[in-house]
């Protein structure tokens, strides 16, 4: 019984940790896309030098 509870708690902790990892990854990718790749004219002009200097495809 105790073993079952402990196992399911560990599984739940692992799921929560993996969700945190996924959330972190998505947050990073969304910001990276907006700053480095989105083609709104305003974003592009403001980020122009950074995009060239980071090796992102710019134009």
């Amino acid at each position: 019984m105790n073993t079952t509870i402990s196992t399911s708690t560990r599984a739940s902790d692992k799921t929560k940790a993996l969700l945190s990892v996924l959330g972190m990854l998505m947050l990073g990718m969304v910001i990276l896309f907006a700053a480095g790749h989105a083609q709104s004219a305003t974003l592009h002009d403001a980020a122009h030098d950074v995009r060239h200097a980071s090796g992102f495809p710019c134009h």
Binding site: K14, A17, L18, S20, V21, L22, M24, L25, L27, G28, M29, I31, L32, A34, A35, G36, A46, A47, D49, V50, R51, A53, S54
Partner: peptide
């Protein structure tokens, strides 16, 4: 100024991705 701001965004974004990797390693 905009260049400086966007370097911040890009590297914070990279750091979020990097540390997500740390989190995965810890799991």
């Amino acid at each position: 100024l905009w260049t400086t701001v966007f370097f911040g965004l890009v590297y914070v974004a990279y750091a979020l991705i990097l540390v997500a990797g740390f989190g995965l390693a810890r799991v």
